[in-house]
C-alpha cells in the first residue's frame, strides 16, 4: 500500500465525514428561509447577505454558551449520549456511494467510503444504534419530560424500523445484493419495455418508496413524527436538559440524519449518482456523478423541510397505528409484488 493509496482511502472516508457536518450550516439557513417562505415572512435576513451568516453565528453562540450539566443526572451517560448521536449519524454515510467508480492515473477509485457486501444492513444497523443516543439522553437527564421522550423514541424507532427495513428489502430483492454500489448499478439505464423511463426502483416500487420515505421521517424524528421532542407536551423531549454544544450535537445529528436519509432515498429508489445515458469517465465524470447525487439528495432534503412546515404532528396512538397497521402491511405487499416481479423476470 503506497502513500498515494493511503491518501485516497483517507480522502474517500474522511472527506465525506468532514463535509457532512459542514453542510449542516447552510442547511439550517435553507430550512429557516423555506419555512419563512411557506409562512409568508422574510426569515433570517439580517446577518450577512440574505442572512447567510445567521447559521455560523448560531454555531458560535452554541459553542460559547455555558455547558450546564444538571446535578441529578447520570454524568457519564449524559455526556456520552450526544456524541453517540453524532457518531451514529456520521458513520451511516460511510457505505453510501456518492459518485461513480473512476479511474484516475491508473488508480481505481470507488467514490464510496467503504463498499461492503452488507452495505444496506450496515446502514440499518447504525441507524438502529442512533436510538441509544435519544433513549440514554432521556433516561440520564433524570427528568420526566426527557424520560417520556426517550420512551416514545424507542418505541417509535423500533416500530418504524420494521416497516422501513421491509420496504428496503424490496430493493434488495430487486438488486439481489445488499451492496449499495450494486443497487445503484442495477438502476442505471432505462426499462427495456419503456426505454424513456429510467430504471429507478421508484417506478416499480412506488409503494415501497412511500413506506420507506415516511419511515425515514419517523426515524429522523422529523415532523410530523417528532413526538420524542414534542415541544407542546414535553418541553423539548429528550434534550430538554441539554444546553450549549451538547444541544447543538443533537441539532447537528438531526440535520445529518436528514441528509443521510435523503441520500439513502436517492440511492435506493432514484439511482444514486446515475442518470440514463450518463457514463462517467475520469475525474470529470466523477465530479458530474457527485453533482447528480448531490442534486437528488438536495431535492429530498427540500421535501423534508417542506413537509416539516406543512404537516401537523401525529398523536402517539395515530403514530403507532400508522406504523403497524398501514405501513407494515403496505411494505409486505410491496415485498410480495417485488417477489412476483423477480419471479417473472427470472422465468422469462
Amino acid at each position: 500500500m503506497t502513500l498515494v493509496d493511503g491518501a485516497i482511502v483517507v480522502l474517500r472516508v474522511v472527506v465525506p465525514a468532514l463535509i457532512l457536518p459542514a453542510l449542516v450550516i447552510p442547511l439550517v439557513w435553507v430550512e429557516r428561509r423555506v419555512a419563512a417562505f411557506i409562512q409568508d415572512r422574510p426569515g433570517p435576513n439580517r446577518v450577512g447577505p440574505f442572512g447567510l451568516l445567521q447559521s455560523p453565528a448560531d454555531i458560535i453562540k452554541l459553542f460559547t454558551k455555558e455547558d450546564v450539566v444538571p446535578a441529578a443526572t447520570d454524568k457519564f451517560l449524559f455526556l456520552l449520549a450526544p456524541s453517540l448521536a453524532v457518531f451514529a449519524a456520521l458513520s451511516t454515510f460511510a457505505v453510501v456511494p456518492y459518485g461513480p467508480t473512476i479511474r484516475v492515473a491508473g488508480k481505481v477509485i470507488p467514490m464510496v467510503g467503504a463498499d461492503v457486501s452488507v452495505g444496506l444492513l450496515y446502514v440499518f444497523a447504525i441507524t438502529s444504534l442512533s436510538v441509544y443516543a435519544i433513549v440514554l439522553a432521556g433516561w440520564s437527564s433524570n427528568d420526566k419530560f426527557s424520560l417520556l421522550g426517550g420512551i416514545r423514541s424507542s418505541a417509535q424507532i423500533i416500530s418504524y424500523e420494521l416497516a422501513m427495513t421491509t420496504a428496503a428489502a424490496g430493493v434488495v430483492l430487486a438488486a439481489g445484493s445488499f451492496r449499495l454500489t450494486d443497487i445503484v448499478a442495477m438502476q442505471e439505464g432505462t426499462f427495456r419495455l419503456l426505454p424513456v423511463v429510467p430504471r429507478w426502483n421508484f417506478f416499480p416500487q412506488v409503494i415501497g418508496f412511500i413506506v420507506f420515505f415516511v419511515s425515514a421521517f419517523a426515524e429522523t424524528n422529523r415532523l410530523p413524527f417528532d413526538l420524542p421532542e414534542a415541544e407542546a407536551e414535553l418541553v423539548a423531549g429528550y434534550h430538554t436538559e441539554y444546553s450549549a454544544m451538547r444541544f447543538g450535537s443533537y441539532f447537528l445529528a438531526e440535520y445529518i440524519n436528514v441528509i443521510v436519509a435523503s441520500a439513502m432515498t436517492a440511492t435506493l429508489y432514484f439511482g444514486g449518482w446515475s442518470l440514463p445515458g450518463f457514463h462517467p469517465e475520469g475525474w470529470l465524470g466523477g465530479l458530474l456523478g457527485l453533482l447528480i447525487f448531490a442534486a437528488k439528495t438536495a431535492f429530498f432534503v427540500l421535501v423534508f423541510i417542506w413537509v416539516r412546515w406543512t404537516l401537523p404532528r401525529f398523536r402517539y396512538d395515530q403514530l403507532m397505528r400508522l406504523g403497524w397497521k398501514t405501513l407494515l402491511p403496505l411494505s409486505l405487499a410491496n415485498l410480495l409484488w417485488v417477489a412476483l416481479l423477480a419471479i417473472w423476470r427470472t422465468s422469462r
Binding site: 457486501s117 444492513l121 440499518f124 444497523a125 441507524t127 444504534l129 433513549v135 420512551i151 423500533i158
Partner: peptide, 24 residues
C-alpha cells in the same frame, strides 16, 4: 459480516432497546 449486521440490528437495535424500553 451478514451475521454481524444482524447482530447489531436485532440484538443491539431491537432486543436491547426493548429491554431499555421495559426498564424505563
Amino acid at each position: 459480516p451478514f451475521i454481524a449486521a444482524l447482530q447489531i440490528i436485532v440484538y443491539a437495535g431491537a432486543i436491547l432497546v426493548l429491554f431499555l424500553f421495559l426498564i424505563m
